[in-house]
Nucleic acid binder design. Sequence first.
DNA 1: AATATAGTTGAGAGCGCTCTCAGAAGTTGT
DNA 2: ACAACTTCTGAGAGCGCTCTCAACTATATT
Lengths: 341, 341
Amino acid sequence: MASSTLEQIAELSGVSRSTVSRVINNDPRVSAATREHVLEIVRRERYRPNLSARGLALGRTNVVAAVIPGAVDNILTDPYFPRLLHGMAMAADERDHFVMLSLGGPGFRHTVDEIARQGVVAGIVFSAGQVDDPLFEPLFASQTPMVSVGRSDDDRVSYVDVDNRGSAQQVASHLLRLGNRRVATIAGPSFAPAAVDRLAGYRAAIEAFGLRVDQDLIYEGDFSESSGRAGIKSLLEHRPDAVFAASDRMAAGALNGIRAAGLRVPEDIALAGFDDMPFATELEPPLTTVRQRPEKLGAAALSLLLDLIAEPASPPKRMILPTELIVRASCGSLQDQRERR
Amino acid sequence: MASSTLEQIAELSGVSRSTVSRVINNDPRVSAATREHVLEIVRRERYRPNLSARGLALGRTNVVAAVIPGAVDNILTDPYFPRLLHGMAMAADERDHFVMLSLGGPGFRHTVDEIARQGVVAGIVFSAGQVDDPLFEPLFASQTPMVSVGRSDDDRVSYVDVDNRGSAQQVASHLLRLGNRRVATIAGPSFAPAAVDRLAGYRAAIEAFGLRVDQDLIYEGDFSESSGRAGIKSLLEHRPDAVFAASDRMAAGALNGIRAAGLRVPEDIALAGFDDMPFATELEPPLTTVRQRPEKLGAAALSLLLDLIAEPASPPKRMILPTELIVRASCGSLQDQRERR
DNA sequence: AATATAGTTGAGAGCGCTCTCAGAAGTTGT
DNA sequence: ACAACTTCTGAGAGCGCTCTCAACTATATT
């Protein structure tokens, strides 16, 4: 497998190393004839440039790190990260880059800033589950181009995110338009920006509808199914007619809880979630929810990152991705609502 | 973040580049005093060797690829791959290596053999869901050290796997010992080695128990919940008293199906699954199953791979990891069985 | 016809590291 | 005291690539 080098290709083509290098890198300063001829040899020899050599000469690599600090906990439970990675990998591939996995967090020897400090990666996609992850600062300080997955208030950072606030507002509004007036929410943990935004969207919807936000109708969960169940138990005391859970898993927990209390969804209580997880369709009734596409997020993050790498001095870039309200049976319909009266 | 080079460290320490290099690489041919002194400077300067340069000089890198061809489909549904990756990442980190993600499959430009062909990675962990993945041959042909996750019949390949056969036999035996005589199975797809092995284990258990394997009691699913449901529907016609589903998801589907048929688990039919997925405890009743630890698989694969890289000429290495039978309520107990009569 | 210009190519240095080889210094044996 | 080691260190080449600079050729400008 000793594969060919630039030098050898040059030899075979009867041109200099420099010329072959230009061909490989699509440098316009090569005559069409020479280019074609060299390309032919390149193809024939199945030549691939050595990335280490190129990285060394260039002073940078075409490898980017996907840093997922909380991986230990999160990655197990949730298809979110795999999908994010998948999107990144696709986008990276398309632009001739590679993704290096860096599940940071406690227990890891090669903390990410070490990785960042040297030619290992050209940039970082940082996907912490929470604001102010301890890894963030050192990474940022390392000056390595970085894109955060998930909004940040820090105006020096580039990020991609889904429109959590807007989508939450949309769901809540939908519940309101259906005639519900006591719309409760099981929010995510307040340290998670996504949770904060979804809660904000919920509030906005209520206020836009001319109602007052009732603190009794807000429960803070932690995105888990069990917290959904705990949340609904507490909320039921305040007789909501609809519940917006900030994650599908919490919605599933809530659904169980509602059942356990002898109530029906959507007849007695309308329910909506967030994420459109695979099981959302399999619940009884199927769950109204917000579809987000982690793949797109990952791809967008990577794309932004490559732009940032290409132009390190440019101002931070942001991108907010749209979501999609998926209406299923769990939130009921206007029809149902009329019958409820 | 223009970080220091070997040269600079050498300068600062008043020794030669070679000596610093030896210190960095734990070469014993350096006096304790010099070593300590150099290390101090290294620490002070937060020096990290440039991986590209090292890779170039060494002719190899400390990056290994995790190749998951079917990622597009699988990674979404199943925490298996994330856990596998997690295990790999941990093990790699521990041994100063990095994991590069390579979700192969259709649509990817940089097919993995390209990656393999040049200094990009020192080795490959290959985790296809099925025998004879089209990516396998070219990868193998590239001579890059490679470890397959999941058994192969090809005796040139190194692999790690869990003891699918043994564990399936153990579950099935457990069902038999509990007094069940018409033990059915919902097998996985026959193109998946894991499925084949689990089915073989099931057969072995029945035969070891002195019973005949009844073809009517075997249904081939595809590991999905819906196939579990379809499977049980078909199997119920042959009145099994126990069912071993080759995946927890199929078991969940079967459970639904059994319920739908008006039967109870475990009173009327004992049920067991495989995988010990998170939801196994949350089913009603909690599911008896086989716990496998994809993290360990990943770590083992990586470890084997590094050995292989260190000694490329060595014969293929194999490793079979144990599993754990987790007995929960779904399979019933001897007590239940007595009452059943 | 002399000169400028654009287009194309090659020579050579250098990226940061490892490794071989040889030399210096210190140790042991006779 | 001298040879024969052993232990430690430095010099220098070279890994495969990119990039700058200079040179050469062909064409356009005056």
